[in-house]
Design a binder for these strands. Structure first.
Lengths: 196, 196
DNA sequence: AATTGACATCCAACTATTTGGTTGGTTTGG
DNA sequence: CCAAACCAACCAAATAGTTGGATGTCAATT
């Protein structure tokens, strides 16, 4: 029923596509290169996924699921958590790049595969809310969003960072990290203070 | 010496290219469409700019200069300023999209045209530093970067925002705005407190 | 004032190449 | 022997970039 391990081919294609799309986006990504990277014939892309667009979606779904587990979990120390998130993006910007391509491709509209129920971040929201002593509601969700943004922004927009600070955010990694942690702590501090 | 107003053609091309690239990026942007949008022959793109890549750079340079003047100037009220920045991006995401395409295209490396001297944000850094009572140095620059990030993040990453909050950041504009302003004030508050 | 030469602007049509997607046949495991 | 997986070769459409000639503008010349 499953001759010649098709699922392995599928996985190799997904990984190759993940790298290719992270680098070049959906318009710039080349099916030929993906097939070559995967060591598989080009036709297999269409056999498994149907089209370039569908392959792109499949990559995003897979990567988002992976990210749900690979992203550090927040503890008592909000700044420390945001620092770890910063580190993980810095070590491997694949995720951040894919999400930027996704955003640019689908614009403000929901991506066709998005299910609102699939909240990969629910545990993060709960953990942050507990640490901050607030309810895990919309407000907490938005705070998590902004904390993730504070960590990702200098990596997502290195040109802006460079123009503002005059330094390269990659060679200047340590001090950027310290700054990011401080911003996160400032936000956490402010929420805590409002609780009183 | 300048028959048949070439500079007008050039300007029309730049504006058409700005819109096209903001929508589709450099790989997805089509020279034919740009020429058509501008109401000009395709060859004029090459006459004026040489290549697609050069046209993209020309657009970025132009847009960054425009942004330097169109971006609100910070006053006493940091939150209010960040709120206005949020509004301007929300009303017209062209700038934010172009900078995302730029970042993805050139990666961490400096874009070939970047001049470190051209600090379009110097006045913003000075104004923010004054309001916060700190020196207009690296630290102040990084703070401005993060404040701009806080304003732009929900617009740059609507998918993330939606997945986290379960709401559409575009229809949910007002409360997102309030949140962004609060984050900015939290950061400002924290800096001020440290001054004591 | 009219003519003309020089030159820059502009365009329709063309080209070489790339690219997403397809097809027809071959291999492989059950 | 059958169905699914696989592949080499192929195709039509799209696309960045080019070419050769036409058209408009200015300035020098008559």
């Amino acid at each position: 029923m499953v001759p010649r391990d098709a699922s392995a081919t599928r996985r190799k294609l997904l990984e190759a596509a993940r790298d290719e799309f992270a680098e070049h986006g959906i318009s710039g990504g080349r099916i030929d290169r993906i097939a070559e990277r995967a060591g598989v014939n080009k036709e297999r892309v269409y056999g498994h996924f149907g089209s370039k667009e569908e392959l792109f979606k499949a990559v995003l779904i897979r990567v988002k699921n992976e990210q749900a587990v690979s992203l550090p979990t927040p503890g008592e120390d909000i700044g420390g958590w945001v620092g770890r998130v910063y580190d993980s993006h810095m070590d491997d910007p694949t995720m951040i790049r894919l999400m930027m391509w996704e955003s640019l491709h689908y614009g403000g509209d929901p991506a066709p595969y998005e299910e609102p129920e699939a909240d990969h971040y629910a545990d993060k929201i709960i953990a942050v809310a507990r640490t901050l002593g607030i309810e895990p509601d919309d407000r907490a969700a938005r705070i998590v969003m902004s904390l993730l943004g504070v960590a990702a922004w200098p990596i997502a927009m290195p040109q802006t960072a460079r123009m503002l600070t005059g330094r390269d955010p990659y060679t200047d990694r340590e001090s950027t990290r310290e700054h990011v942690v401080r911003m996160a702590n400032a936000i956490a501090q402010d929420i805590r203070r409002q609780q009183e």
